[in-house]
């Protein structure tokens, strides 16, 4: 086995590297900069170069090497390269090849185009490690253009009712995707500090976003009416929100597909917008790898593995990891902010 799952993470003994380790190790390849995949304390990091500024922002002055998509590096005979995962800017699948056996650890991925990440590219392999965050057939996400249109319509309606629109999405990835598709002709886009920090970093790497204004403590409250505020989940129900009254709040997440979750979060609106593949996306991605062996991690892993065995006749097993694509409820200080 070129890769194995041990208590530190996904390990390649031949190259002595870990992929997204959750405990400190010597050599770590990081698929993307979300906190459940990029942990603190490793000696050496390797990631796509777009991830580096965010890793440094979140983890401090780490020893990190950046690579391009498709660039090959060889460690002790193992050919290693990163390939676009389409999840957030800089997100990558890790391809490892040794003596003709090819593995791919895909981290988090999606096939839908989001306008900010390099689009997902299938990697032909024998062994594929996949997430299963939305690995049930109830998760068939609507076309993202429709969702972006709904978001702007909702903003416009709030504006007509003289309310502030507050739209919630994770600070890294989701927030930029939201901003990218908001219509600046409707009004001003304001950002929470956590979102603005990441916008600035990503803009330096070449991401183009519509103009936004960072909210500071003395931003005049009367300016918000009719405009939109992009904020991370930690803002929901916090006193920080009071300045926007009267407002309407919407959450952007794949979980908004379920009525129960929408109601529990007591948001006024839920937009089904996810950085993860939906049921159809997962199935398509797996088929395109041509892999005969699939390792199913975080999500509905037992159901999804069973489905793959029964319907695609793939040798699929479930694997325990500590990645958390599943949660909508964690507190979201930048350090444990998790996407969904």
């Amino acid at each position: 086995m070129l890769l194995k799952f041990d208590p530190y993470g996904i390990y390649c003994p031949q190259a002595n590297v870990y992929i997204d380790p959750w405990k400190p190790v010597k050599n770590a390849i990081i698929t993307h900069a979300h906190a459940d995949h990029a942990k603190w304390g490793n000696e050496n990091y390797l990631s796509h170069h777009l991830s580096i500024p965010i890793l440094k922002f979140r983890l401090g002055d780490i020893n990190v090497q950046g690579v391009e998509y498709g660039e090959e590096i060889i460690i002790n005979g193992v050919k290693i390269s990163l390939h676009p995962a389409g999840h957030i800017p800089g997100s990558a699948q890790v391809r490892l090849e040794y003596k003709g056996e090819i593995w791919c650890a895909s981290g988090d991925y999606k096939l839908q185009l989001d306008g900010i990440s390099t689009p997902f590219e299938p990697v032909r392999c024998h062994h594929f490690v996949t997430e299963s965050t939305f690995g049930l057939p109830i998760y068939r996400f609507p076309d993202s253009q429709t969702v972006h249109q709904d978001m702007n319509d909702w903003w416009l309606k709030n504006k007509e009712e003289e309310k502030t629109s507050v739209i919630i999405g994770y600070a890294l990835g989701k927030a930029q995707r939201i901003i990218k598709h908001l219509d600046p002709a409707i009004g001003t886009i304001y950002t929470h500090g956590a979102v603005d920090n990441l916008n600035r970093i990503l803009e330096k790497t070449g991401l183009e976003l519509p103009p936004t204004k960072r909210i500071i403590s003395d931003t005049n409250k009367s300016l918000f009416k009719g405009n939109i505020v992009v904020a991370p989940p930690s803002a929901i129900g916090s006193p920080w929100m009071k300045r926007f009254l009267p407002y309407s709040v919407a959450i952007c997440s794949g979980w908004m597909q379920l009525r129960g979750t929408r109601r529990r979060k007591s948001a006024d609106r839920g937009f089904v917008l996810s950085d993860h593949a939906d049921w159809a996306g997962l199935n398509q991605a797996i088929k395109e790898t041509g892999a005969e062996n699939v390792y199913v991690t975080h999500g509905y892993k037992s159901a999804f593995a069973k489905w793959l065995r029964e319907n695609l006749h793939i040798n699929a097993v479930e694997v325990d990891t500590l990645y958390e694509g599943e949660s909508l409820n964690e507190s979201t200080t930048p350090e444990n902010e998790i996407d969904s």
Binding site: P137, L258, R259, K306
Partner: peptide, 23 residues
Amino acid sequence: VSEWLFEESYHVVGDLAETITLL
């Protein structure tokens, strides 16, 4: 969708009408 997968989905959605709608 086979029966076991329908049941898995139903337990997640928690509502029969909605499960059918989504499937």
